[in-house]
Write a protein that binds this DNA or RNA. Structure first.
Length: 139
DNA sequence: GTGATGACGATAT
DNA sequence: TATATCGCCATCA
């Protein structure tokens, strides 16, 4: 794909944002959609993840979960593998199989990264991070 | 071109 | 808090 994502397909942009989630952190379908913008909804993000090959290692699909903090029920083995991958990164689940967003929730990419890749999220999401410069405020 | 589908989300009950 | 319903919009048949 091109370095400049302005002309990239919707899926490519979704994968690019998802790829910014650091190990040990998780994001939600709605968050990714809000960052990508431009007619992207949570459903599209989920659809994009479903389109990935299961053995894909270039996109951290396992770090994208639903807004309830649960791994999306996609039928059996895949969901369990996703949980194992996250636990390997240090993400803990409670008795109900949920994660704590206060603990492992992703704060979003740096604004400089968004600008460099021509993403245009709502300006209201913009704020000053503690030591990491400007970033999004998604929580 | 048209309708069905879906790794979702917000709201109502 | 746990279901039920409806809205959402890019793909696909």
């Amino acid at each position: 794909m091109s370095n400049n994502l302005r002309d990239a397909s919707l899926y490519e942009r979704i994968y690019a944002v998802a790829g910014q989630i650091p190990p040990g952190k998780v994001s939600t379908y709605g968050q990714i959609a809000a960052i990508v913008g431009g007619g992207c909804t949570a459903r599209e993000v989920g659809y994009a993840m479903a389109a990935l090959k299961e053995d894909d290692t270039t996109t951290p699909w396992q770090r994208v979960i639903n807004a309830k903090g649960e791994i999306s029920p996609r039928g059996g083995a895949g969901a369990m593998m996703q949980r194992v991958l996250l636990e390997r990164e240090g993400v803990s689940f409670d008795e109900q199989g949920r994660v704590d967003f206060d603990q492992v929730g992703w704060d979003g990419p740096l604004w400089a990264w968004l600008d460099r890749h021509n993403f245009k999220p709502a300006p209201s999401l913009r704020h000053k991070g503690p030591d990491e410069g400007e970033q999004l405020s998604l929580f």
